[in-house]
Every structure is written in structure tokens, then in C-alpha cells.
Design a protein around this nucleic acid. Structure first.
Lengths: 178, 178
DNA sequence: GAATCTTCTGCAACTAGTTGCACAAAGGGA
DNA sequence: TCCCTTTGTGCAACTAGTTGCAGAAGATTC
């Protein structure tokens, strides 16, 4: 049940409409919790129902009209308790590792191309994260607590991508010696 | 659509019944593609329907009787084409990173405990992987291709857990300086 | 030989996420 | 003025994964 909390976080950072949220989920929060516009609209409905957010009053409430949402105190409280909630880590799901395991059984032909492609994608993502880091967290300054936390999150993304880049590089080298 | 292929891989490694598969998914393949017994039974049904596997003939086919499955040539072929299939990496889903991002907005109280707990869990998993590595892949020997691929998969798991251990350690240190 | 525990299979109903499409309104052109 | 694209919201139907429960068969124990 993370999506509603992802949305609450995003809305606290800045009140937004559904489509705006969707766009922001394509970067930033969406880097580690992605969602389609469909999920977001549905969840906004539920959150409003639950009294966690409300639509800012619009002149004419009709279908197809943009609706901006803001977080209500109840929503902020909910997010607060969720942050401290206990939840076991979900076992990872790595389709590529599964594929390689299958390749060990039926042969690795054709796998190289896919590994190469993924390596490029992960390298690209890594570069993007690094660019964000130099832009948003220039080294020397003293940062506020929220900024330090956000930086930690970004570091997580960076190291995760670095892991993939390194693993894929190693795997390709290993496959190359056939 | 990875689960059917995970099952095909497991069955090729060794024909099994539903419950045996479930147990094997609790380790080994399940380390990076977990599944409940429910998913597995359902998927076995579909795979049999599709002619990819078959139940070994049992004397009395009744409910509650164990059924052992083996992969048919069509199933092996399907797995072969799947290995080489192109599929974009799914964006990662890291609830902990999301939580930390939320903490940046509503305050990090209570987060420390959860981070500490996760650190212990990931450390434990890492140790388990390392134990498997020393048991199954003693360093000096020349390994066959399938073994080298399986080792690569295991290395993936190891480095992934190491990533979490390091990130969590760093995060705790950073939070500690408050 | 009856009670009960374990093993194994499975149905049903749920939550979460995805895909395809529809419809309204606004802003440009031609 | 009419068409067309863009922006924004949303329904419906799907796939994937989870949870709760139940029932048959065999082993165990009293």
C-alpha cells in the first residue's frame, strides 16, 4: 500500500492536479515508485473519499476540467504514521537474473544482445541521477535535514544503477570468454 | 510474464510436483522471483493446458494426490525463445526509499528503527548467499558454462544485498548525526 | 480403529498494476 | 467557422500477485 503515500508525499511537496502528478511521477518520486495516470486518478478518488485530500474548489466542476488537490491534516497524519510503520522488504524481482538462470539450462544464445541493451539503459539512468546530484546537491554546502534525506534517496538510486552497470559489465565479460 | 518461465526452468532442472516447486521457490529461483503455492498451481494448470508440460501418469488421478510434472519439447522451445526475448527493465520499486522521501516531508521520527531492522535482514540474506557461494562455487575449479551462468546469478544477488547493507549503513550514520 | 496431524492440491475472492479507449474543453490554424 | 491537436479526466477490462480457506490422502499416535 505505498502508492497513496507516494501521492500524499508528492502533494505535500506541492498541490497538483492528476496530470501534473503523473508528470512528476515520471521523474523524481516515480524513479523508485512509478505509477500510471490511471492508478493516480483512481487513488486520488480514494484519498478524497477517505478525507485525506481535497480538491481545491473549482468554479465549474465538470468532467475534463482540471482539478487541483491539496493534503488535509488527516492525510498528513496518515503519512506520518506510515513513515514509522514496520514492513518487511519484498523479495526482489529481477527478470534478468531469472533469464540468465534459464539460459544456464537452455543455452545463452541471444542473451548477449539483451544484456548489452540493458547496460546502456542503466548507464543512461545512472548518468541522469548523477546530473541531478551535481545540480541539486553541490558538495560543500550545509544542507537542511529534508535535503539530506532527499540526497540519501538519490544516493540509493545512484548506487542501485551502479550495481546494475557493474553486474552487466561483468556478465558480458564472462559471456565473452566463450 | 516471467513466472511460467521460472517454473519451466525449475522443472527442467528437475521434474517436480506443485508443492516441491513451492519449496524450491522459497530458495534458489525464488531468491529473485518469488511465488506462492497458489500462483504455482495455477500456472502449472495453464502450462499443462498449453502443452508445455505434462503430468507424469499417476495410478489414480484424484484430488489431493501429488502430481509430478515434466517439461515437454514445446515447453523447452518456449523457454529458449523467451531467454532471447527483448524486454525493458521495470522501474525499481523501493518502498524504503519512498518512505525516506516521505520522511523528508513529515519528519524522520521512527524511521531509524525500521532502517536498523532492514539492515539486519539484508545482512542475513547476504550471509546466506555468501555461504551458498563458498559451498557451490569453490574458487579454483574450472566451471562448465551452466555453472558459470548460475554463479553470475548468485553474484547478482550478493551484490544487490551488499548494496542495501551499504546504503542502510550510510543512511543510519547520516541520521545519527542529528 | 478412531482421532488428529501433515502433506498436497486447489477454489474463491481479494488488491495492485496495466492497457485501451472515450470524452470534454481549450487553443490554434486554414 | 470548422477542423485538429493538446491537455486533462476518467471508465472498463484486463493480468499478476496475495490471502483465506477447504478437502482428500496418508502417517502417527492413543
Amino acid at each position: 500500500m505505498s502508492l497513496p503515500h507516494a501521492i500524499l508525499t508528492a502533494l505535500l511537496e506541492k498541490p497538483s492536479s492528476g496530470l501534473e502528478l503523473t508528470r512528476r511521477f515520471d521523474k523524481s518520486i516515480g524513479y523508485f515508485w512509478s505509477a500510471t495516470h490511471q492508478q493516480i486518478y483512481r487513488e486520488l478518488g480514494k484519498l478524497e473519499q477517505a478525507g485525506h485530500i481535497r480538491a481545491l474548489p473549482a468554479p465549474v466542476p465538470v468532467r475534463g476540467q482540471r482539478k487541483e488537490y491539496e493534503v488535509l491534516p488527516a492525510g498528513r497524519a496518515e503519512l506520518g504514521t506510515w513513515v514509522a510503520r514496520t514492513e518487511d522488504p519484498k523479495p526482489m524481482r529481477a527478470a534478468l537474473l531469472l533469464r540468465m538462470r534459464a539460459a544456464a539450462v537452455v543455452g545463452a544464445s541471444g542473451l548477449r544482445a539483451e544484456l548489452t541493451r540493458h547496460l546502456a539503459l542503466h548507464q543512461e539512468q545512472l548518468d541522469e541521477y548523477l546530473a541531478i546530484e551535481t545540480r541539486d546537491f553541490p558538495s560543500e554546502r550545509r544542507h537542511s535535514e529534508p535535503d539530506r534525506l532527499r540526497h540519501l534517496v538519490l544516493r540509493g538510486g545512484i548506487e542501485m544503477e551502479r550495481f546494475w552497470v557493474e553486474w552487466l559489465t561483468g556478465a558480458l565479460a564472462e559471456l565473452g570468454t566463450e
